[in-house]
Design a protein around this nucleic acid. Structure first.
Lengths: 136, 136
DNA sequence: TAAATTGTATTAAGACAATAATACAATTGT
DNA sequence: ACAATTGTATTATTGTCTTAATACAATTTA
């Protein structure tokens, strides 16, 4: 069962949260190419949201080449998978890093504080949590 | 000059982004109690957004007791503004870092990639701090 | 005192998100 | 063949966010 966490607190549109989290699962291999994903109505029921909202997310994912949908048959992860090239992936990461730097500065932490924290977390990440579900 | 980073990509309402980042600056002491903050119209011009949007953020912050606004006089950080202690600030930063690590992993970047990127951005960050405003 | 500054308030419009209720099309399973 | 499943599409409604354009009130400044 696909685990998607919907947050209604941060103002991010629900369909966008679904798209982003599905992308991550595909990128990390948690959703393999060819693998079938839950029907729109099923996922909607699971997430307690309207089927139209899930449909919108699936439609977006298909338009990006990540999903392949067929009426009656269902929706699967495309064989080609995520089509992000290096520059695009770097762009995403860069934006995340910029946001982190601003926020850390606002919280009065230095860059070295951040880096130390990253190394700490990374140690834990690789020694105990690698391969497990870390989306919570 | 207050540094606020507005993202128009992730769907988070602009007024909410302002509220969150101001809160962090107050929590860390980067915005001190009694300190005056930019007039609504000035911040709006700086962020290239509508004054009403800034007004909404300020209104929200005042309703939470973080700001104190007076017509004609301006808006200041409340004397007994909510301040997070070190553990709480670290907790916020830790969550951000964890999110970044997960996302970077999904995007197939290593920790060293992240750190290198941080050092790059940090260099730009401080050089632009001295000179003029380089807003992405 | 008069002008400028600053916060407050209102109304309107457009765009978007989400829900709701259907209907239809293609495929699958019996 | 038939029913169930599944994706697709449409229309309507409600609510929120943002911009826009004003107007007004309180304070500061010249």
């Amino acid at each position: 069962m696909i685990k998607i966490h919907i947050s209604t607190k941060d103002g991010v549109p629900i369909f966008q949260q679904i798209v982003t989290q599905i992308k991550h699962m595909v990128a990390s291999g948690r959703l393999a190419p060819g693998e079938i994903v839950p029907p729109i109505r099923v996922l909607a029921e699971q997430l307690l949201i309207n089927p139209n909202t899930v449909a919108r997310a699936y439609k977006e994912l298909e338009s990006e080449g990540i999903f392949i949908s067929r009426q009656g048959s269902g929706t699967r992860v495309a064989e080609k998978g995520s089509t992000l090239d290096y520059a695009e992936r770097l762009q995403v990461l860069t934006e995340r890093v910029e946001s982190l730097l601003v926020e850390a500065d606002q919280l009065d932490f230095t860059v070295e504080d951040i880096i130390e924290l990253i190394r700490q977390k990374n140690k834990l990440f690789y020694t105990s949590e690698r391969g497990k579900n870390i989306n919570d």
